[in-house]
Computed example of a mutant assay.
Amino acid sequence: MNIPSRICETDLANEPAGQASGPGARALLAAIMAEEPAPQEHPTGAAGRPGVRRGRRLLIAVTTAVATVGVAAAVAIAVGLPGDGPATSYANAAVSITRADDDYSIAFTQPVRDPRLLEEAFRAVGVQAMIKLVPALPEHVGLLYGPHFDSPGWRGNITMETVEPCPAGSTCATFKMAGGSPDSLVFGLGRAAAPGEPYADLSPVHVGRYQSALDGYRPDGFDPHGKTVAAVRAELDKRGLKAVYQLWWNYPDGHFFSSSAPAGQIADGWIVERSRAYSSDTIEVTVVPGPEAGPAPSPSPRLHWWDVP
């Protein structure tokens, strides 16, 4: 299919919201419909006689979708073969996905504001994916989290490559998914958290996690790592911030895990391992328990952003 280069994204972006009737959309549709496959000779007709069978036509779907935070129309293009299952490629304003046999390439290069656009694209190529809106730090709103998958029988793998340049407020990356797709694939999309609402416990794609930061993900001159709980509590009081606590349990075999604990169980002399922004007014402080804390308990699972309804 040969779509003229003169039909560009700006032509389509200026279309009336929710319509495909403007000049750009009409030009695109005309270019698509002009591509008629040439007749192909078929060895035999229905009764065993020589006949002509028309080549299977590429299925091109052109739709418009209105983002929830804007009025610009987005054009989605799917390519596949009728009756042959999912599309082999799909692209809209949020993502571009191509499929070759059991391998997928998933490219994010633009800001994503409507999770339905992502789910629509995955569904078109036959991937069962869920996009969850997760509470995020202000600077992480609109960024992608994950992916997380839970499919014990799946033997494939997912790798990620960065894409540059990248618009502000976007996650720009290409995910390669080989060996088919897992039964359950979950991406997170950062949304503005309500005052006091806990943020997602893990950072978005490409965003480093400053383990020693006291304010969000940015070091600001005060390093809690290695300080006593009393010193960190005093600093939090000075800043008008509250604290929640995790105990960092280490096992003789080198394994470790953390568990939540009330402030009354945290001794002032214990040492802080790290911290992170928990919500708009609270810092999560991870502490190494002293000997008086007793033996480490049995590990227990911790809820992550993909577990929260």
Rank of each mutant, 00 (worst) to 15 (best):
V112R: 03
G196E: 07
D150E: 15
A94L: 02
A121G: 06
S181D: 06
D201K: 14
L81Q: 12
E197C: 09
P167T: 02
N92C: 10
Y145D: 00
A192P: 10
V134P: 00
A178L: 13
M160T: 12
L189S: 02
E119Y: 05
G142I: 07
R99M: 05
G196L: 07
V112N: 06
F108D: 01
A129M: 09
G188V: 11
G179F: 12
H148A: 14
G190L: 09
Y90F: 15
V127G: 02
F149D: 06
A93H: 12
V127Q: 03
S105Y: 04
A121C: 03
S89A: 15
V127F: 06
P165W: 06
G142K: 05
S151W: 10
C166S: 14
C172T: 08
P147N: 08
A136F: 02
S96T: 14
V112Y: 03
V95S: 00
V127S: 07
A93S: 15
R99V: 11
P147I: 01
E120R: 09
Q110K: 15
G83Q: 11
P165D: 09
L118K: 02
P111T: 10
A168R: 14
K132W: 01
T159Q: 13
M130W: 08
R123C: 04
Y104S: 05
G179Q: 12
E164T: 14
L189E: 02
Q110V: 11
G188T: 10
E120K: 04
A168W: 08
I158C: 05
V112F: 09
R116H: 14
L117M: 15
P204E: 04
H148L: 12
L118H: 06
T174V: 15
I158T: 07
L118F: 11
D84W: 01
T109G: 09
I97H: 01
A193M: 06
C172N: 02
P115Q: 08
P204W: 03
P115H: 08
S170K: 05
T98R: 12
L144S: 00
G188Q: 07
D84S: 11
M130E: 14
F122N: 00
